[in-house]
């Protein structure tokens, strides 16, 4: 594998977006890019990552390779990332380490790190990425982040309901309750503020607040978030990158006993 990002912070943002959700991950590298999937320890949150060749300045993968890494270690190395430096990932044919080369031609500087790879035997779940959903919402990731931060302070359960009137996020705590209603809007001046809903039926689902607080860490990847909901199935929270690919979180709902 030889894969070069023209801006090293792209890879840093991707890794930082889920490093607190899962501890380790297998990156599966092939001609068609880098894909990964990992489940959190409580088996409630599934992270999927897709970095297609279009995200790289140059991308070459001669034979399919799996690179297993501890995310905490990789994240430490990526602290060196900045917008002035490129980052090339190298993995040899018999992979036992990942080489990260940061280059800042303007400053005549380069940095090289090596990360030991780990053998990860992880459960893989078969997720149909074309999974039909009853409700799809596209909205500003900034707005979503703020709503999650504000409401999750009040309760460890977070409810999402979507009707033709809009999307309602609500919490019911012991001492306080809160509700945020967002209606579809079109902001011609800044389309990242748009909110659109397409639905075939209404939904009303609850999730544990702590996972939503993990999910919003990925908001730096994109100024938009796509939400997909169906009754009694995991919800999908997806951040798509401008150049293709992105990071998605499947979150299992809570149900009333």
């Amino acid at each position: 594998l030889e894969a070069k990002f023209d801006d090293s912070t792209i890879f840093k943002k991707i890794i930082d977006s889920f490093k607190d959700s899962v501890t380790q991950i297998n990156f599966v590298c092939s001609e068609s890019g880098i894909e990964a999937q990992a489940i959190d320890d409580s088996r409630v949150l599934l992270v999927t990552v897709s970095i297609p060749p279009s995200c790289f300045e140059s991308y070459r993968c001669d034979r399919p390779t799996t690179i297993g890494v501890y995310l905490a270690s990789l994240a430490k190395l990526l602290k060196s990332a900045n917008t002035n430096s490129s980052l090339t990932l190298y993995v040899a044919d018999k992979p036992d380490e990942l080489l990260l080369l940061f280059e800042e031609p303007k400053n005549q500087k380069s940095m090289e790190y090596k990360l030991k790879l780990v053998d990860i035997t992880a459960d893989m779940l078969e997720v149909d990425s074309d999974m039909k959903s009853d409700v799809t919402v596209e909205m500003s990731s900034v707005e979503f982040t703020k709503t999650v931060r504000d409401l999750t302070q009040l309760s460890d359960s977070f409810t999402v309901s979507v009707t033709k009137d809009g999307i309602v996020f609500s919490v019911q705590g012991d001492t306080a309750q809160g509700k945020v209603l967002l209606q579809p809007r079109e902001d011609l001046a800044d389309e990242s503020n748009n909110l659109s809903i397409s639905m075939s039926k209404t939904i009303d689902l609850s999730f544990a607040s702590k996972y939503l607080l993990d999910i919003i860490k990925a908001a730096s990847i994109s100024n938009k978030i796509f939400l997909k909901f169906s009754d009694d199935t995991p919800a999908l929270f997806e951040f798509k990158m401008e150049k293709g690919g992105g990071v998605g979180f499947y979150l299992a709902p809570k149900y009333d006993d």
């Binding site: 088996r43 409630v44 599934l46 893989m124 779940l125 078969e126 359960s157 199935t233 299992a252 009333d256």
Partner: peptide, 14 residues
């Protein structure tokens, strides 16, 4: 009280 579903209740292992 709400209970928490697990992912494998919905997805199959590969």
């Amino acid at each position: 009280l709400a209970k928490q579903d697990k992912l494998e209740d919905f997805f199959d292992f590969i």
